[in-house]
Nucleic acid binder design. Structure first.
Lengths: 238, 238
DNA sequence: GGTTTGCGCTTGTGTATACAAGTGTGATCT
DNA sequence: AGATCACACTTGTATACACAAGCGCAAACC
């Protein structure tokens, strides 16, 4: 669990406001309380509050207008990582579910792994699992994930169905994604993938390889994804 | 070109450090001067210096290590927009060239345009052009671009061959890209596109639609791209 | 030789304050 | 009624300071 003894005040402010926005307490276009109001609420000063607000700007939760206030915006879909969106704008999360095909298992890295690994990573081995994302029961994305097996006690027993992987590792191990890299191809799926996605092998699909770096040294998250973009597409805000 | 009367100190610090990094004065992995050193240099306080440094973090120019310092990193490749990279890491820009197929022309927006346009955009019309990117003479990316025709004097006579579009509009009109959105599909190319990319219609290619918002109201850049990922791939850092 | 400790450096977090400048509203003036 | 002005409220920029905590190295210790 590794709950921090004390979390900085500005992070608490970020968390509170973020949660309030996520829960719909502040709707898109609404104004957050002014800096001075927040100062009173948290018994702190503008420097600290502004530090929090600039965090929310970076996350894409708000924009700020001189003389006006902090305006809630549509949050960025996480770090510029390509994420799903429906052809019609209004596809909500409720239609999307995640199926675990291969639950988390500790194993050595594959010999022909698609990224170069350093010594520490090779020594530690990885945790491997595969997931299938469906929208309205239709499979659209198949993902194979490898995480360096460092400081992840009991991770193999965590339930990953229908939860955000990033939120899980953040909540349980306080791991943040710092940077990342993704490579993208258009390919024809092989038999296995085509069968999982329930399409013909002649149907073009997106293939992606990702490497995400975290705030823990040598703890990286690698994944290989295949995505059927016939009815849906991949989307990216920045 | 619209020089501000007074620019804030923290912006000057950002600019100075950014320039120094770009010019190679601080190389990748090197440490910037400490906050206190910068305080002395600019006769200011840590709050202001930290404001500048956090700007550089956002731009991806540095990362910071507690107890260590500000470390210069490889700058982000433009805003998380997917960009090219070779299968082998070492593909340099010198191998890539840009061919203008349809030079810039002022015209009304297409009737069935792929993004929704507002009244101002519709009134102003657009500037349209198409480009073909080649690596070693092999065509890999075909791009159709539409820019709202606002405040772009003489843009139709600018030469776009082998130059960065973003750098051109930044240098000549002081236009910055603020935010963006891109959608991605895997498709089989139609006859026209397949011919341009010199591939069979059965070859899967990437299709992207992009919308880039600038610092000028209603001046947006739209593009529709087709990319052959047989030998190369699209890459994205964040 | 190897370990521990202390110290000076760094960034991280926070308080208290000040003035500049943009936005909107209501009172006042014409 | 319509334009102008003053004011309150907002964020933007900046100063000055304090203590916490991580890093690296050298001196001291065993």
């Amino acid at each position: 669990m590794l709950r921090k003894e004390t979390i900085p005040l500005y992070k608490k402010v970020i968390d509170d406001l973020k949660t309030a926005i996520d829960k719909g307490f502040y709707k898109k276009g609404a104004l957050l309380p002014s800096e001075n109001d927040l100062c009173k609420t948290y018994s702190t000063t503008r420097v600290t509050i502004r530090q929090a607000l600039s965090g929310l700007i970076n996350m894409g939760y708000i924009i700020r207008k001189h003389g006006k206030g902090s305006i809630v915006t549509e949050p960025k879909k996480g770090l510029g990582i390509l994420s799903f969106a429906g052809v019609t704008a209004g596809v909500g999360d409720h239609k999307l579910n995640t199926l675990i095909l291969q639950p988390q298992v500790k194993q050595p890295w594959p010999l022909d792994f698609f990224y170069e690994l350093n010594k520490v990573e090779l020594t530690k081995g990885c945790i491997y699992f595969t997931r299938l994302r469906q929208i309205d029961g239709v499979p659209v994305l198949y993902e194979e994930t490898y995480i360096t097996n460092i400081n992840l006690p009991r991770f193999t027993s965590k339930k990953l169905e229908n939860v955000s992987l990033f939120k899980t590792i953040k909540d349980h191990y306080n791991i943040d994604i710092l940077t990342g890299e993704q490579k993208i191809w258009a390919v024809n799926g092989d038999k296995t993938v085509s069968k999982l996605l329930n399409i013909k092998t002649s149907q073009p699909i997106i293939h992606m390889k990702r490497r995400l770096q975290t705030n823990i040294n040598d703890l990286n998250i690698y994944s290989s994804l295949y995505c059927n973009t016939q009815e849906y597409f991949l989307q990216d805000f920045f």
